Amino acid sequence: MTGADCLFCAIVAGDVPGSTVLADDDFVAFLDHRPVFKGHTLLVPRRHVVTLPDLPAELRDGFLAHGQRLATAVVEGLGAQGSFVAINNVVSQSVAHLHLHVVPRTKGDGLRGFFWPRTRYASDAEQEEYAGRLRTALDGT
């Protein structure tokens, strides 16, 4: 998929309607059309970027700063007690354009989280091997 056939690029360009809540030269935030709760907002870079690892370094600070602002806005503007903030990369990413979900939360709202399958490491050594592999990957970035 390219920016030319991306739903979020079309929303950013104004070719598809979206309820925009924030816009600047680099980012746009708009309401999710199928919200978990009313006020569920999606933050996207204007530039077609597919996943968080693809986000150019010069956009990282702005992306997080706007995420913080949106997390505050759902509390101050909607009366939520907090927020759920998430990014899917490839798996469960319904639109192949980086987007940060900011979902307003209230205690007792019924959202029970994710039901992820759990696994175990075969041994402490296997666990340390995985930790080491991640440290190596992080040292290379």
Rank of each mutant, 00 (worst) to 15 (best):
A4K: 08
A10D: 14
V12R: 02
G14S: 15
D15A: 14
P17R: 02
S19H: 10
S19F: 04
T20I: 08
V21S: 11
L22A: 09
A23K: 09
D24P: 07
D26T: 05
D26V: 05
F27L: 08
V28T: 12
V28I: 14
A29L: 12
A29R: 09
A29P: 15
A29K: 11
F30W: 08
H33C: 14
H33S: 14
R34V: 03
R34I: 01
P35Q: 10
P35F: 04
V36R: 13
K38A: 10
G39I: 05
T41Q: 11
T41S: 14
L43T: 03
V44L: 11
P45N: 07
R46P: 08
R47S: 00
R47N: 00
T51F: 03
P53V: 08
A57S: 10
A57K: 15
A57M: 01
E58V: 13
E58N: 15
L59I: 00
R60I: 00
R60W: 00
G62V: 01
F63R: 15
F63K: 15
L64A: 14
L64W: 03
G67E: 02
Q68A: 09
Q68I: 03
Q68C: 07
R69Q: 11
R69E: 09
A71E: 08
T72E: 15
T72W: 09
G77V: 01
G79P: 09
A80I: 06
G82W: 04
S83E: 06
F84P: 13
V85A: 09
A86C: 15
N88C: 05
N89I: 01
N89F: 02
V90K: 12
V91M: 13
S92F: 00
S92L: 01
A96N: 04
L100Y: 03
V102G: 02
V103G: 11
V103M: 12
G110W: 04
R112S: 13
G113A: 06
F114L: 14
W116N: 14
R118C: 12
Y121A: 12
D124G: 04
D124K: 01
D124R: 01
E129S: 14
A131K: 15
A131D: 15
L134Q: 13
T136V: 11
A137C: 08
A137M: 12
D139G: 13
D139I: 06
D139W: 03
T141L: 13
